[in-house]
Write a protein that binds this DNA or RNA. Structure first.
Lengths: 339, 339
DNA sequence: ATTCCTATTGACAACGTTGTCATTTGGGTA
DNA sequence: TACCCAAATGACAACGTTGTCAATAGGAAT
């Protein structure tokens, strides 16, 4: 490993001068700078982060604590978004994947302290982080795609209420009146919010919200749920006055509706319109006709989390805003206008 | 941050004694050990990795350079597998996501050097790493899910040949004779190997391999490809003596075949058997009937890569084995026996 | 009691960097 | 020429840890 000392010796200047050049300190004569820079490149000098860190106290590493990556495909985009934003600041991500194991999480918090990470993004699905706050970790923490009920930390989450509104509004505007709804597990926060959004859309349009057409697409506990949307959709579609459209809680449910329609010989969108949520493109782009859905903006959530982190370091401890990231409609071919 | 010095002062012993206890050095009197350990816990001491690293020269961080995470869903499982194996050694993963940008990759190599990562896992899809070897990085490198043509590094890759064999053998054994094949881009290594495996299966069974039933499911260049499997499947299935089964290069293609079958009013598996590859469970578990497919063992690849890394550090530079990880058949409901 | 040996403990330097402060250099001004 | 000031450079300490080696203590052997 090439050190400042070696470069300095080779260039015939002091260690400190080389250090200054590496750190773009203007107080160096241009000629000296050029001369030394040649040596730096030639010897392929790379500053030792460990030494820097020891001297300065804060690293350029951001910790990302997550169980989301394990549980949801494409939640990787949170990572990508964060990294994209981080790249500018020459910071890097240390990813800790807990798979939901609290013991493992505790170990990773210790690890973050040991590495002196500058800040932490805590990304999780569904459940609220309980063990948060406990770890005596004093650097900024921002929650991504989740939030802690106790508060105390900024969080960046998708605007599920608006997302639900978008789904319902889109179909209502296109003349659908009998709309089936296949939801996520109703205990999930996202599910509640989207339901609220949909009802708001019905209300505005002046259409009666028909509870009978609302069913849950999963059974079982949240950690061990089983898809039953196929059966649910089949029973919905077999009925005499079947819905003309079905709104789904995610694209997986939508896929099951596609299969149910196929099973019953109904074509999409001629006989049935289908709307998804998430925009998992392995599904939405691969089915035929392509799925109209509402996107879960993971990339933007990750990016925004980093942005919040930058702000967080300059705010007071009490600062804990909730940033809602919009869920854009992705219009494809699975919904037809009835007019 | 609590330091050894502070703990030592509090416990009334020397810094070195505390250090010994933290590092499980047996040369400490049990009473001293117990006494100090109480203080360690009470003060919540965590050793400073930066200082350790500076002293010792090697970190406990493993770098993971990848574009795979960006391009393929569930390739995250490589990360999870690696982490699971790493956990034992109390090492952690520093993930560098290149999105395929060579400039960014070069920057990350520098970063790895700066962080003095102990070793690197290089995970990529499709293309061979060209810039590899260039970065003067002297720690062990293992390639995951890819390999460098120049050799020089151990690699862990799925056994695509055997995977292709498995696909064909499964259908042949169940009496299928007219088997359609919708492949990945034929320039991809995986595609070539699987083709070879399938032909081997046909050969062994003594069935003629009908080239006319083999079509590519994508158009366009590898970096910007477009799914056309739906159209391909429709044309295949419209023909008078249509295939009784279709083997797909991945589950996305299989999903398109499902949609094509639905479009033509054919039911799966009664009128058509479908076999996928990858086992993306957002598809394979969500379609109805559930998809019989061959799994891409990402988790195991990640795990194995770490295992190879451990071995690599004790091997000579020339050591560069290729480890083939089997692709297990996942039998579900999309294939029927003709007998 | 003295000596010796081993078990235990401690003092100190070093890792590579940067902050602080002192020193040198060079050029302009009186 | 002498002087002064700012710009440029350097010497040194410190960050927290561990390796090396020295010092101490305590017990056994004489």
């Amino acid at each position: 490993m090439v050190t400042l000392r070696e470069v300095a010796k080779r260039a015939g200047v002091s260690i400190k001068t080389v250090s200054r050049i590496v750190n773009d300190d203007p107080a160096v004569r241009p000629e000296t700078r050029d001369a030394v820079q040649t040596f730096l490149k030639e010897m392929n000098y790379v500053p030792d982060q460990a030494a820097r860190l020891m001297r300065s106290g804060t690293s350029n590493i951001i910790g990302l604590m997550t169980d989301a990556v394990a549980t949801t495909p494409y939640s990787v985009d949170i990572v990508r978004g964060a990294q994209a934003e981080l790249k500018r600041g020459h910071k890097t991500l240390l990813i800790a994947n807990t798979d939901g194991d609290p013991e493992l999480e505790a170990e990773y918090w210790r690890m973050f302290r040991a590495q002196k990470v500058a800040a932490v993004i805590y990304a999780a699905m569904y459940h609220r982080p309980q063990s948060m706050g406990k770890p005596d970790f004093n650097e900024p923490i921002v929650l991504a795609n989740c939030f802690s009920k106790e508060g105390g930390h900024a969080s960046v989450i998708p605007d599920d209420e608006a997302g639900g509104f978008t789904q319902a509004e889109y179909l209502l505007k296109r003349g659908h009146r009998r709309i089936g709804i296949i939801t996520l597990n109703p205990t999930i926060e996202a599910s509640i919010l989207r339901g609220r959004g949909m009802r708001r859309a019905f209300g505005i349009t002046g259409v009666h919200y028909n509870e009978d057409l609302e069913r849950v697409g999963y059974t079982g506990s949240i950690t061990d749920e089983k898809l039953i949307a196929f059966d649910v959709a089949v029973s919905m579609l077999k009925s005499a006055n079947r819905p003309t459209a079905i709104i789904c809680g995610n694209d997986k449910l939508a896929l099951q509706v596609y299969c149910a329609a196929a099973h019953l010989g109904l074509s999409i969108p001629a006989d049935l319109s289908v709307m998804g949520f998430d925009d998992l493109n392995v599904i939405s782009e691969c089915v035929w006709p392509k799925l109209t859905t509402v996107a879960l903006p993971y990339f933007e959530i990750g990016r925004m989390a980093v942005e919040m982190l930058n702000i967080a370091s300059e705010e007071k401890p009490g600062w804990a805003p909730k940033v809602l990231v919009p869920c854009p409609l992705v219009e494809r071919d699975s919904c037809r206008a009835l007019v």
